[in-house]
Design a protein around this nucleic acid. Structure first.
Length: 471
DNA sequence: ATGTGC
């Protein structure tokens, strides 16, 4: 696979064979060997063969290998021109995303206070595999209310304040959810997991603003130098996973009926306007709303922990980085309805976009780029001139597999090193900590630099970790 | 990502 450099941070995979559009990879030159080194580039080219794809198959600067689509992949298909929807372009963890909360306190709290805060968070934030959430639902009927109304249903029940919803993508609920397309097995798994982090790279971190790049936008976001924040990264748990599993199976069996030929079976897809396409999108929206309610419940757990110290938490923004959405975009001068798949990619609306909350219209959309528990995370902002359907990077991106990380890192030792650097860790297990070692990831500073250089989003603030609750 | 496997 050859990459042709177009600009300092933009590379092209020329259209060839069954590719319908070129591939476009946003990366710094030093990130390219890591990108080319795994199978992600092949996946970018494979995605370019999907029926109805427009403009290009995109890869964000944190791209790495995933199921069918690369993680860090963006692809839009034209709904009225046979465009397809592919669950592999969303990912197993439907509407996995990040939420940032701004605390009414500045950094350097007394060490004892920080320890106490982390102890409360460690004791009260459900995490790890399997059931166990903050909100046990009464049954499927109540679950379906969450599947339709998302974070709004949680807030209605006292789990949050109305302002929270103004700072959620889609106001906390994606339209078009169809609970009847969520199977009983998925629903059963979902009943006991609302308000739980899950495992792997999911976390709740206490962070501090360590550097401000754009003071005006930071102020608009409610952030300033030294401020304490809480970042929550989680998704739709077993419910989303089961929805993906169930609908991939149906699509895999439907490929022939729709005359779709693919270079990789994991790209299983059907036309958006087909019955199985509509069924998946309805189930996907339901799972997305479950993920938003999940982050809303975890927000309340963080608020209770901070309230013990008399500190409040305001929502800065909540955004998904695993989702497909029907959006209007200009394609060759014509407004088209597109199905935009963002898998490990964050929507990044520019200033002035009508879908922004009123008080962020001038600033643009906050774009969270979580790094690792030992390095940093960024808050960026959407910019005009982003041709990847207003999409941006979503994190550092792995370079070591979990298996490699386990071979190279001792969790207990890593925990000691982090504590020695002033980062309090509350992991579910030493093994889980080792898998998520900072060395297993790309350099998030380089990813943020490349993201800005590529014109996808601009840096607003850099956050450093003070305490980590890990699934 | 995931009660980590048909």
């Amino acid at each position: 696979m050859t990459l042709v450099q177009e600009t300092p941070f933009r590379f092209r995979i020329e259209r060839q064979g069954p590719m319908r559009v070129p591939g476009v990879v946003f990366a710094a030159r030093e990130l390219v060997p890591q990108v080319a080194g795994d199978k992600a580039l092949e996946q970018v080219a494979n995605v370019a063969t999907l029926p109805g794809i427009v403009r290009a198959s995109y890869a964000m600067p944190d791209v790495h290998w995933g199921y069918g689509f690369p993680i860090g992949g963006v692809a839009a298909t034209d709904v009225e021109a046979g465009g397809v929807i592919s669950p592999g372009g969303v990912g197993f963890d439907i509407s996995c995303g990040v939420r940032l909360l701004a605390a009414g306190m500045d950094r350097d709290p007394p060490a004892s206070g920080m320890r106490r805060l982390m102890d409360i968070l460690g004791d009260t934030v459900p995490r790890g595999l399997g059931p166990g959430g903050l909100w046990e639902l009464s049954g499927r009927a109540q679950l379906e209310k969450i599947l339709v109304a998302g974070a709004g249903y949680a807030v209605e029940h006292g789990h949050g304040v109305p302002r929270d919803l103004e700072r959620c993508e889609d106001r906390g609920a994606l339209a078009g959810a169809d609970p009847s397309q969520v199977g009983q097995r998925a629903a059963d798994r979902g009943l006991k997991q609302v308000g739980s982090l899950g495992s792997a790279n999911h976390f709740l971190e206490v962070q501090a603003v360590d550097r401000v790049y754009d003071a005006e936008t930071a102020t608009a976001f409610g952030l300033h130098q030294g401020q304490v924040c809480v970042m929550i990264h989680c998704g739709s748990r077993g419910l989303g996973h089961q929805v993906c599993t169930d609908h991939v199976r149906v699509m895999d069996q439907s490929l022939r009926a729709y005359g779709i030929h693919l270079p990789d079976r994991q790209l299983a897809c059907v036309p958006v306007v087909s019955p199985p396409g509509r069924a998946y999108l309805g189930a996907m929206a339901a799972a997305a709303n479950y993920a938003r309610a999940n982050r809303q419940l975890l927000t309340q757990a963080a608020r209770r922990a901070f309230a013990a110290a008399g500190v409040g938490l305001d929502l800065v923004y909540d955004v998904s980085h695993n989702i497909a959405k029907i959006e209007s975009h200009d394609v060759d001068g014509v407004s088209r309805q597109l199905c935009v798949h963002r898998k490990g990619a964050t929507r990044a609306l520019p200033p002035g976009h009508p879908d922004l909350p009123a008080d962020l219209t001038r600033a643009g959309q906050p774009v969270m780029v979580p790094g690792t528990m030992g390095t940093a995370s960024y808050v960026m902002v959407g910019t005009v001139g982003n041709d990847a359907f207003w999409s941006s990077a979503h994190g550092a991106g792995r370079v070591w597999s979990r298996h490699q990380a386990l071979r190279r890192v001792r969790g207990e030792q890593l925990g000691g090193e982090l504590e020695a650097h002033g980062i309090a860790v509350r992991p579910v297990s030493w093994r889980a900590l080792a898998e998520e070692a900072p060395d297993a990831y790309k350099d998030v500073d380089a990813v943020a630099t490349a993201t800005e250089g590529a014109g996808l989003a601009r840096r607003v603030v850099r956050l450093v970790p003070l305490g980590v609750v890990k699934g």
